[in-house]
């Protein structure tokens, strides 16, 4: 089982869009996929039309009063299940903090799923916290969306510093440019320049596109209903890069 985390320190950068589309692509290849919406805002849960509710909240899961598999919901797509968001996830830091080895709780929980799933995709809330440490320790690969702005490089550096400081084996990092508008010169320049400064950056670039915005209206991954779109193709390429990287 491979654990992929769509993670960023910043919000609004296309994390949920990437998580939802990559999860759908993985499932389409016949892999058994679980998408865990760890963000209390529940964007991914909304996209898949699932009720953002976990009985007993995040605490019941972390304290193992409730098994993860018991709260899983099937999505409308083959091989793709969702572990829904719950508003209580905003307190996950505190729940983890009260446990033994608090930075390894998430990884331990995910181990229970290794027979059931081939891929787990974590859609994480934007933060630098104990939850983030758990994610870094549990993931095999971090997918990091970057907005095309000079500040992004700084954000990526910060993130790499953070990962280096977390104990244990470091996950791979696949940062990619997200919400790129090729009509804008600054974006075009950054698409050219950033890979030179960061050779590990993904070759795939996710464009800003109306299809991406429409996902919230259609409430389904765009690779499902607009498979021929530029954005869907870009997610397809990103998925291949992720597979090659883990």
């Amino acid at each position: 089982m491979k654990v992929l985390a769509s993670y960023s320190i910043k919000g609004g950068v296309g994390k949920t869009t990437a998580a939802a589309n990559l999860a759908r692509l993985a499932a389409g290849e016949g892999r058994r996929v679980l998408l865990w919406d760890l963000d209390p805002q529940g964007g991914a849960t909304y996209l898949f039309r699932v009720r953002p509710k976990v009985k007993g909240g995040g605490e019941a899961l972390v304290r193992r009063r409730r098994e993860l598999v018991d709260v899983v919901k099937a999505s409308d797509f083959d091989n793709l299940d969702l572990l829904p968001s719950d508003f209580s996830y905003r307190h996950l830091d505190l729940v983890f903090d009260g446990q033994n080895k608090p930075t390894r709780r998430l990884g331990r929980l995910l181990k229970d799923l290794s027979e059931e799933y081939d891929v787990v995709v974590l859609d994480c809330a934007p933060s630098v916290s104990l939850v983030s440490e758990n994610i870094v320790r549990a993931a095999d690969l971090l997918l990091v969306p970057l907005l095309p702005s000079p500040l992004s490089v700084r954000t990526l550096n910060q993130l790499e510093g953070f990962i280096a400081n977390v104990k244990g084996k470091s996950p791979g990092v696949l940062a990619f440019l997200s919400m790129v508008d090729r009509r804008r010169k600054l974006h075009r320049d950054l698409v050219e320049e950033l890979p030179r400064r960061h050779p590990g950056l993904a070759r795939s670039v996710i464009p800003v596109a109306s299809a991406v915005e429409q996902m919230g209206v259609r409430r389904a991954p765009l690779v499902e209903w607009a498979p021929g779109s530029d954005a869907a193709r870009a997610f397809g390429e990103l998925w291949q890069e992720a597979v090659n990287r883990w």
């Binding site: 389409g28 290849e29 016949g30 058994r32 083959d78 091989n79």
Partner: peptide
Amino acid sequence: LSELSGRRIVRVP
């Protein structure tokens, strides 16, 4: 692939 009960485990195109 499914269980005898009919619960589907995985379906591949």
